[in-house]
């Protein structure tokens, strides 16, 4: 197999000052199913990192570990060099299944995050309104999730994440419930919001099975494969933005991803 210069097989620990870094992660679920063996992922300052891998390989699990929701068997995750032992509003997780609370309006849903950081009611409301506006939901503040479409609900969840003013956003298939047209619009919006100067946001991790989407957004892509999963490749995407799928490099990268993503050969160790 051809191995282009920018496809690095596995990354070691100890690279200087990452924003968010998971080092030597091993993890098994309580039922004994071993999900990861020695995973290393590093998110640099102002980087958009993609993670791809076959379904069920452990992408969601990995984000949970990176956010401190699950403790790895060995290894650790560091935020600016500080070990993460439990979830923190500095690293916010946007779930694969859209999580809004049906008993709260859109505004109340979004206010949950500033309110929990002891921001006073009136100020929290301002923060929440701003976040809703950022995701294009102004005028819909008083709707309940049940009155909204799937795409609107996912935008509420994203607004709630933004309203926490996180340093890192972990996004698990945030666009997979949306139709292609809405998804495309939202992808662009999100990218623009994410790296605006006025936010403390310094990095994004995006899990997606949509390779085009990842190539369109990410600076670096980690490829997970095998059982237990390891990082089988890291791709540095070197296409100028705004990216076009007609760029010949685009299909070259796609080919690499496809090759690396052939289903894992190993048997499940249940």
């Amino acid at each position: 197999m051809r191995n282009p210069a920018n496809l690095v097989g596995g990354v070691g620990p100890g690279q200087p000052i990452s924003l968010l870094e998971s080092v030597n992660i091993h993890f098994s679920y309580e039922n004994g199913y071993k999900v990861f063996e020695n995973i290393n992922i590093s998110v640099g300052q102002d980087k958009f990192v993609g993670i791809v891998g076959p379904s069920g390989i452990g992408k969601s699990t990995l984000l949970r570990i990176m956010g401190g929701f699950l403790a790895p068997d060995s290894g650790a995750t560091y935020l600016m060099g500080k070990k993460i032992t439990k979830p923190t509003p500095k690293v916010v997780f946007v779930h694969q299944s859209i999580i809004t609370f049906p008993w709260m309006t859109a505004l109340e849903n979004v206010m949950l995050s500033p309110r929990s950081m002891k921001v006073p009611q009136s100020e929290a409301e301002i923060v929440a309104m701003k976040a809703l506006e950022d995701v294009g939901l102004q005028g819909f503040e008083e709707l309940y999730p049940k009155e909204m479409s799937g795409g609107m609900r996912q935008r509420v969840a994203i607004a709630r994440a933004l309203a926490a003013n996180p340093m890192v956003l972990l996004m698990d298939e945030p666009f997979s419930h949306l139709d292609e047209l809405t998804a495309e619009g939202l992808r662009q919006d999100i990218y623009n919001i994410l790296f605006r100067v006025d936010t403390p946001l310094k990095g994004v991790v995006l899990v997606s099975h949509n390779l085009t989407e990842v190539l369109e957004l990410a600076d670096e892509i980690y490829i997970l494969n095998n059982i237990p999963a390891t990082v089988v490749g890291k791709l540095v995407v070197d296409i100028p933005r705004p990216r076009s799928i007609r760029n010949p490099k685009f299909s070259e990268y796609l080919d690499i991803l496809y090759t690396k993503l052939s289903p894992p050969g190993g048997k499940k160790n249940e």
């Binding site: 949970r64 956010g67 929701f69 439990k86 979830p87 923190t88 509003p89 690293v91 916010v92 997780f93 779930h95 299944s97 999580i99 609370f101 949950l112 995050s113 929990s116 950081m117 709630r160 926490a164």
Partner: peptide, 11 residues
């Protein structure tokens, strides 16, 4: 996931 949202914001 709902519980995780609560944990995330440290309610």
């Amino acid at each position: 996931e709902m519980v995780e949202v609560g944990e995330n914001y440290r309610l």
